[in-house]
Write a protein that binds this DNA or RNA. Sequence first.
RNA 1: GCCUUGGUAGCUCAGUUGGAUAGAGCAACUGCCUUCUAAGCAGUAGGUCAUGCGUUCGAGCCGCAUCCAGGGUACCA
Length: 597
Amino acid sequence: MNIELVLLEDVKNAVLKLYGQEINDNQIQLQNTRKEFEGDITLVVFPFLRISKKSPEKTSEDIGTFLKDTNKLVTEFNVVKGFLNLVIAQEYWLGAIESANSVDKFGIIEPTENSETVMVEYSSPNTNKPLHLGHIRNNLLGYSICRILQANGYKVVKTNIVNDRGIHICKSMYAWQKWGEGRTPENTGIKGDHLVGEFYVKFDQEYRKEIEELVQSGMEQKEAEQKAPSLVAARELLLKWEAKDPETVKLWQTMNSWVYAGFDVTYKELGVDFDKIYYESDTYLSGKDEVLRGLKEGIFYQKEDQSVWADLTGDKLDQKILLRSDGTSVYMTQDIGTAKKRFIDYPIDKMVYVVGNEQNYHFQVLSILLDKLGFEFGKGLYHFSYGMVELPSGKMKSREGKVVDADDLLEEMVNVAKKMSEELGKLGSLSKEEATETYKKIALAALKYFMLKVDPKKNMLFNPEESIDFNGNTGPFIQYTYARIKSVIRKANDTGITIPKKVNSGHILLPKEKELIKKIKLFPAALKESADNYSPAILANYCYDLVKEFNQFYHEHSILKAETSELVEFRLLLSDVVAKVVANGMELLGINMPERM
RNA sequence: GCCUUGGUAGCUCAGUUGGAUAGAGCAACUGCCUUCUAAGCAGUAGGUCAUGCGUUCGAGCCGCAUCCAGGGUACCA
C-alpha cells in the first residue's frame, strides 16, 4: 500500500464532499514535507482556492480535518499558508521498511514473457583507433541504461554496431602499408587498437603535410584537400575493398582483428558486454539495396555525377547524400541496412541508439528516411543523445592525438585507488588477490560514478590535471558506506545478533530513522524516472542522497550499542535495507560493491 | 545565416509534473578518531539561478527577446 495513492483518493473525496466539485489527479500536488516543518506529507492547496472560494488557511483547515477524520493513517495536521502538512502514523513507516525488506530486490521489476523488447545500441566504435574518454561515457551510459530498462521490466537486447568498414579504416590501412614496416601487435607488444590508432594519426599528419605542400604550390585549399595523394590512395583502397580485392580484404581483416582483440580487453575492464554484435560490413550492402530501391521508386534522386540523394526539404531539412558519386556508401546508407536487419532478427518494440549529440541531425534524418522507405518502425526510433566530454582545452580529437585514452585512464585510476587504500591501511586483512580486486572495484566506481552522475544530455568537463575524486559525491564514498554497513552486520553476526524479519510495532521512530525510511521508499520512483528519462544520473544521485542520509544517522546514533536489543535489531534491519537498496541501485550503474574497503 | 542544446557558488555538478528560506562535493577556514570503518561527520564562508520583459496566488523550471558557449548544417563517421 502506498500512502500517496490513498491520499490522492481521499483528497478527491474531500474536495467533492466539501466543495461539490470533481477534480483530476494532476490537480493534486503531494510532496514530502520539508524538514523544517512538522509533518510527513504536504498537500499544496493553492490549486483548490478557486473551487473553495476561501482563504488558503481555511481551505487547508477544511481538507485537513476531513482527511484526519476519514483516514486513520493521518494522525495530525498543521497549516502553513497554503500548505497542509500531514503527519502519517508510525505504523505506516514501520510497515514500509518491513515490506521493503521482505522482497529480494525491492523496487526492481523483472521482465516477463509479455514484456516489451527494447534493443539498445551502444558503443559503436570505429575500428581505426582505440577507445577514449568519450567512448567510455557512451559505453557506461549504454550499459547502465540497459540495466535500468531491464530493472523496469523490459526485455533488453544489448547491441553494438562495429563501424568496421569505410574510409576511416582505409586511412589506417594505407598508412600501415606505406609506413608500417610490418609492425604487428605481436612483434611490438603494443595493444592492437593502439597500434592501428597510431597509423590513423600518422595518416592525418602526412595528409596535412601534403595539403600544405599543394597549397604552397598554388592549389586552392578545397581542391588540395580532395587531391592530396594520401586521401586519393585511401579512396582507392575503399573502392578495392568494396570490389572485394583479396589483398585489401585480407589486410582489412588482419588489422580489424588486432583492433577487436584490443577492444575486448577494454570492454572487459569496463565491465560492459553485448548480446549481439552487428558489423557494418555485413549490413552496408543491404542498405545500398534499399537506397537503390528508393531511387527506383522515386523516393530519392540521382545527380549527373551518379551520386544519390534524398530531398528532405519537405520535412524542413536539407538534401542528404546516400551514395557517393563513385558508388560507395556513406554512414547513412549503412545505418539503413543495419536497422532493417535488426528488425528482421528481433521482435523489437523500441529501438534505442546511444550516440553523441553531434549526430542529432543524422538520427532525425535516419528516422525520416526509413519512414519514407516504408519501414513502419522508422518513426519510432529513439536517439539517446548524450553530451560531449570536453577537456579544459576543448573537444577531444582522435586525429590530432588530443584525447584521454580509455586504457591509460583505467590504469591510472587503479593506481590511485591502490595508493589511497594503502595509505588508509584498511585492506591488511585481505589477500593480495582480494586487495587487487578491491582496488579495481574502487577505481571503476570512481570513474563510472563520475561519468554517470552527470545529466547525460549535458556536456561534461574532464580535467586530466586533477584526477577523479574518491571523496565526497563519488562512487567510492557510496561503496565505503556500504562496506561500513557490511562491517557492522558482520560484527553483529559474530556476537550472535541476527537481523529480524519483523519490526516491533511499538518502536518509536527517531526523526533520522524516519528520514531514512522515506528515502528508501523513493527508490522505485527514482528507478522508474531514471528509465523514463534515459538518465542513469537520476539513479546515481538517488544513491548518493540515501547514503548521505545514512551517514548522518550513523554518526548520530549507534547501531550495535543502542539502548535495547530491540533497538539494535531494528537499526540493523534499517541499515541492511539501505545496503541492499544502494547495492541494487549501484549495480544498475554497473558499479560493484566491495564487502570491505 | 539557419537548426539545435546548454548557461545555477571560485571549480565540478544536483535541483521531482511550477510550490515554502535554491542544494551537494571540491578548493579555503574551524572543530571531531580510547567510542559500530575519519574514503566520514558537524560548522564557517561563498548566489542578481546569463540579462530583460511576460504568464501565475507562486518562476531556477513555462513563454518571448537579447547576450555568451557547444554541436550540426549536401559526397567524414
